[in-house]
């Protein structure tokens, strides 16, 4: 079985948020429930200020702290699914301990105050147990893996688009949208990336493009000191996330 990993080249990312939009459309997430987001950081002052883009999906950690803390095994790492970390919505009790334990802030409890008004949950009220039911919805549903639109009171997160990836031919080293016969199996954020800053493939295959990129371009993992060991690697300048600074007080 493959060990799915993602490589994001920050020298190519333009911060266009197409990946964020594609993810939201593919997975029918609510505003603010950004399973995939492009964060930006700024440092320094004009005229030498810098901005850094940081696309941030779930890291699908090798040693995921969210899995360790979950009291019900609702969050689990599935080695038979490429090492993707899932949330079983039939088991989640909504204690939110995984959200506390995740170092990357990539878990969401959509049963909260809406980010934007009007509330989409009021416009498209949920049916069949869903938190909301938009008019167009991805037909893929697998609540045991947190795929689809979640019910109320559970935690949701990026699944590396497992509903697409899982259909790829066995033994495929890389899922590259440039290869026509593979493009339907590529995660939405990777497929839509215009500057081709994202790559997706098998981290267990030494010949895969993702492994070659990590090796040749010195791929790094975010917050590696936490020991979570993400399956997402970053290339290029800008992978160093500046420490938090509060807004200057007037």
């Amino acid at each position: 079985m493959a060990k799915w990993g993602m490589v994001i080249d920050l020298d190519k990312c333009t911060g266009c948020q197409a990946c964020t939009t594609a993810c939201a459309m593919e997975n029918n997430t609510l505003p603010g429930e950004s399973w995939q987001d492009v964060l930006f950081y700024h440092q320094g002052k004009y005229p030498s200020a810098q901005m850094k883009w940081l696309p941030r999906p779930c890291m699908q950690c090798e040693n995921p702290s969210c899995v360790h803390v979950c009291p019900t095994r609702a969050t689990y790492k599935d080695m038979d699914a490429g090492g993707i970390v899932f949330v079983d919505w039939n088991k989640c009790i909504g204690c939110k301990y995984c959200m506390i334990a995740c170092p990357y802030g990539v878990r969401f409890y959509a049963d909260e105050k809406p980010l934007l008004e009007p509330d989409l949950r009021d416009i498209f009220p949920g049916s069949n147990g869903q938190l909301w039911s938009p008019p167009y919805q991805n037909p893929e549903q697998d609540w045991k893996r947190g795929i689809g639109i979640q019910p109320a009171g559970v935690v949701s997160k990026c699944t590396f688009c497992y509903h697409k990836v899982s259909k790829a031919p066995a033994g495929t080293p890389d899922l590259d949208e440039a290869i026509p016969e593979l493009k339907e199996y590529v995660p939405a954020c990777v497929r839509t990336c215009a500057p081709k800053a994202r790559f997706f493939g098998d981290l267990d295959n030494p010949e895969s493009q993702v492994n070659r990129l990590i090796g040749d371009k010195h791929g790094v993992r975010l917050k590696d000191h936490t020991g979570n060991k993400p399956q997402v690697y970053y290339l290029g300048a800008g992978a160093g996330v500046p420490a938090f600074e509060p807004k200057p007080r007037s």
């Binding site: 987001d37 964060l39 940081l54 995740c102 802030g105 938090f244 600074e245 509060p246 807004k247």
Partner: peptide
Amino acid sequence: PLFKGTWEWD
């Protein structure tokens, strides 16, 4: 803010 960057800069 945990990993929110300039989205949450306070």
